[in-house]
Design a binder for these strands. Structure first.
Lengths: 349, 349
DNA sequence: CTGAAAGCGCTTACAG
DNA sequence: CTGAAAGCGCTTACAG
């Protein structure tokens, strides 16, 4: 087992100082640092002869960047279910990181005492190993994000995140516009009463869908009352619930997730009703799970790959041009998928 | 933007030397290094007060470990196809890395001039950023593996890899045993003539399947001649080819991949024959793609998750007990999936 | 055009 | 029980 050669070895063999060798190897010669072609050649010859390879840790420590982007998720990044939640995000992230010449560091050793993951774990801010980081996942800790921002650590969240008091960078899907668009499509088909089932407005992504719905209701003059917006568990989407809605004159719904949509479907079936003949459903996102007998949902897809790509671009831009006041937030359009679950309302026929 | 505090700051605040602070923070107190409980407490108080987080690059450089495991693949780690090739490997790797307290560094910035990826890139050995690395992927460069081994860099390959002159650590699926088992099952059903379609023995995984087949043929006294083992492209698995094999008396085949198996199936259908009534097929691995009308294949599954887990364990063991002559190679059993594509041979009825 | 030297933030013998 | 000091392998002013 031979020992690795160091920059000093290269310098000695080439008959130059480590400063010169470093400059040559890092291709920073040409402006302030001028090196004769002969010296240049001697350095590269020495590198080749010794099989020199730089130690990235030393480079980092000496103040250079290490061209590593961190990836932090508030949970396992490779979940067990086949339909991998993060896969398309990661695909975009890797694709763009490779293009920009960055490695990816996955922070997996971050389990905190509550069983979740934390950035400020034990005695180490994990993220400082990387030049900057991409954060993903629903269960973020806003205090950590604030601290990160206050520390001046460069990061971008994949998904809109608002933290009171600080502004953080993110790339998000434009759920608001997509939800509004689907709502308008239903209105244009003749629906006059539409209701919404979403999650409590604890997550920005839920807020965006809900506000898209409300916005479209205003625009289309659809009524909003206490039977229009629901934050209820799947178990509450019962046939009784649905019957009540039908009695109120509702002819369609915008629903935020496949599980809820499927529950709605089951309840309609239980009442002997079909989609979209008797009732229209638009799904606000793409399915998380694979269902045996799933209709061809009318929905929008979340631009996961693009969100990953743009997050890397934004972060790299931040790292390489820190003074550049580039946009720190970006909304990417969601593609509307026509599907087969919306139609003109029954009563309108 | 406050500046990060260093170990020296912690030491000063706690009124101790950096050596003591380092020992406390790294939990190495107790044997040679004895620290009073009060000192211990003062150090941790200082850490908390300053929000101290260690710089992993400095740790690495100073000869300490940084608890980072590298992951190197000879191609994108997140391929575009939905049925993600690496997903289950990564799942196992992450799971075990988290358990062992290691982070994961994905080397994505490794594109070489040929469009592939290389470990020794430019003037840097990427892998030295990590304590040790896990390598995956079919298109490895054996020269790089040799150099890595000669440099004494700790790594484990997921999948059997043989490099002339050096012995490298790996975790592999036991394809040989699984192929032999399926061959024996067919023989026990009454098949006396079985043929094999595989890849040219350029990959260890192909060699293992082929030798498992040959071994079982010997054991079961099945004939081996020039129509028994094929390394042919999918396009050559034509009805003509199949008819020829049937004429030679073959009643079943062991085939190394879904694409080839499906081609075989099509050719049989074209001849008006059905599986398994007229012909038996065993698939040597699990499908890579999702097929519209795929039979319930008799096959074996590759223990991807377990291979990932064991690779991490082996690597960590190598890192933490370098003197420990633990097994450097491990073969994990493949699970046989009964399926519906093998049966007693037609002629035997 | 090039070199001597400081310094990045740690760990680890070694000395006491 | 604890500290002073060397050293890991680089980069980067700074001096000439």
């Amino acid at each position: 087992m031979k020992t690795r050669s160091r920059l000093a070895d290269v310098a000695k063999l080439a008959g130059v100082s480590t400063a010169t060798a470093s400059a040559v190897i890092n291709h920073v010669t040409g402006r302030n640092i001028r090196v004769s072609p002969e010296t240049h050649q001697r350095v590269w010859d020495a590198v080749a002869q010794l099989g020199y390879v730089a130690n990235p840790a030393a480079r980092t420590l000496a103040g250079g960047k290490n061209r590593i982007l961190g990836i932090f998720t508030y949970g396992p990044i490779f979940p067990f279910q086949h339909h991998d939640f993060f896969h398309l995000f990661l695909l975009g992230i890797e694709e763009e990181a490779e293009r920009q010449g960055y490695h990816l560091l996955l922070f997996t050793n971050a389990t905190n005492t509550n069983g979740g993951r934390s950035i400020f774990h034990d005695d180490t801010n994990l993220l400082y190993m990387a030049d900057g980081s991409i954060l993903l996942g629903l269960n973020e800790n806003k205090d950590e994000l604030r601290r990160l921002q206050e520390d001046g650590y460069p990061f971008v969240y994949v998904g809109r995140r608002e933290v009171p008091g600080v502004s953080i960078s993110f790339t998000a899907g434009d759920y608001q516009a997509a939800t509004a668009e689907l709502t308008c499509q239903l209105a244009n088909l003749g629906h006059r009463r539409l209701f919404f089932i979403g999650f409590p407005p604890r997550f920005e992504s839920s807020i965006d869908r809900e506000s898209g719905f409300i916005q479209a209701c205003h625009q289309q003059n659809l009524p909003l009352d206490d039977r229009t917006i629901f934050h209820i568990p799947v178990s509450d989407i019962t046939p009784e619930f649905v019957r009540r809605q039908l009695e109120e004159g509702y002819t369609g719904a915008l629903i935020d997730m496949d599980v809820q949509c499927q529950a709605m479907l089951s309840s309609l079936h239980a009442l002997g009703l079909n989609v979209p003949q008797d009732f229209s459903i638009a799904m606000l996102g793409d399915p998380h799970y694979v269902w045996d007998n799933s209709p061809d949902w009318t929905m929008f897809t979340i631009p996961r790959r693009e969100m990953g790509i743009e997050a890397v671009r934004m972060l790299v831009n931040q790292l390489e041009y820190p003074q550049n006041p580039a946009p720190r937030t970006i909304f990417l359009p969601c593609r509307i998928v026509p599907g087969q679950t919306i139609a003109a309302p029954y009563r309108a026929n």
